[in-house]
């Protein structure tokens, strides 16, 4: 009877302690709870506490990094997500997913060179599809970095077996063509055209609304100057004032036309970059989901 009581007591005691002592999964559950409620500051603090806890092994740390990385990614905290996904080790079953998302986040954060570096460093997977995805991402990263030649050379080997990837590979080639065509317009030609007819350079750059507005401004100031010159002569202060204003607007229009070539190019580049990023994200998401 005495032994039975001791046994019962020890079982109770051990159960009590086992429940009090938090398991790694409990910590993970709590971290998910904090992040999904957008309590990021607290989840950061708790993440550090969990990671530094005695007994947390490398596999668990990898899982923590993977899980928290994706939670931050889903909540648009991209920089934090990127640093967490980078830390996922090769023994984790979701290693390639983490690495490819990490590379994608580098591109999204406007650091295609880092993306290229990490993708080149990434050792080939046993899965052919993962390798195809990696090559596709590498081509996209080169395109975002402005190296269309390397992008095209990788694109030559595109022969994906995944339908969604095949479609995006074709799109990537067209984005590469768009990027090449964006570099052709000259700011000097735009300036020269605006010197002949104010606003014409902006038409050449592809900005018709600004062209009309510039033409009207310079035209009206020109008309006022001519009127004042005809009635008051060249030495009249009002003539000089409007002549000065007209000159400033005329030169400004030439300068603006040269700049607008660059602005329009940047706008088109940005649109193209956003298309490339979407194109990279779609197969990544579909493949790993």
């Amino acid at each position: 009877m005495k032994y039975l009581f001791v046994l019962l007591f020890s079982v109770c005691f051990s159960v009590g302690f086992a429940q009090q002592d938090f398991t790694f999964n409990d910590d993970l559950d709590f971290l998910i709870h904090l992040s999904s409620n957008k309590l990021f500051h607290e989840s950061d603090v708790y993440f550090e506490q969990t990671a530094l806890k005695v007994g947390t092994n490398i596999g668990q740390l990898d899982s923590l990094n993977y899980l928290m990385g994706f939670l931050y990614y889903q909540n648009d905290s991209l920089k934090r997500a990127r640093s967490l996904l980078r830390n996922v080790g090769p023994n984790n079953p979701r290693y390639y997913k983490s690495k490819l998302y990490h590379a994608y986040l580098c591109m999204k954060l406007n650091e295609p060179d880092s993306s290229i570096y990490y993708l080149q460093k990434l050792e080939p997977s046993t899965s052919n599809e993962v390798n195809q995805l990696r090559d596709f991402q590498l081509a996209g990263a080169y395109l975002l970095a402005g190296d269309t030649r390397k992008c095209d050379s990788i694109s030559l080997n595109f022969n994906s077996t995944i339908a969604v990837l095949r479609e995006e590979q074709i799109n990537l080639k067209s984005y590469s063509e768009i990027q090449k065509s964006n570099t052709r317009k000259s700011p000097f030609i735009a300036g020269a055209l605006s010197a002949v007819v104010p606003g014409l350079g902006k038409v050449y750059a592809g900005n018709n609304a600004q062209a009309l507005s510039g033409f009207l401004r310079v035209g009206i100031l020109g008309a006022i100057t001519v009127e004042n010159y005809m009635r008051r002569g060249i030495r009249d202060p009002q003539t000089l004032l409007f002549a000065g204003l007209f000159s400033a607007f005329y030169i400004g229009n030439i300068w603006g036309s040269a700049l607008s070539v660059q602005i329009v190019k940047t706008e088109k580049d940005l649109e193209n970059k956003s298309n490339i990023l979407v194109g990279i994200h779609v197969p990544l998401k579909k493949f790993f989901n």
């Binding site: 159960v15 009590g16 086992a18 009090q20």
Partner: peptide, 15 residues
């Protein structure tokens, strides 16, 4: 019963 009560008690995180 004792075991059960201990277990339930222990499930609550202490404040």
């Amino acid at each position: 019963c004792l075991l059960r009560s201990f277990s339930t008690e222990a499930q609550s995180y202490p404040v």
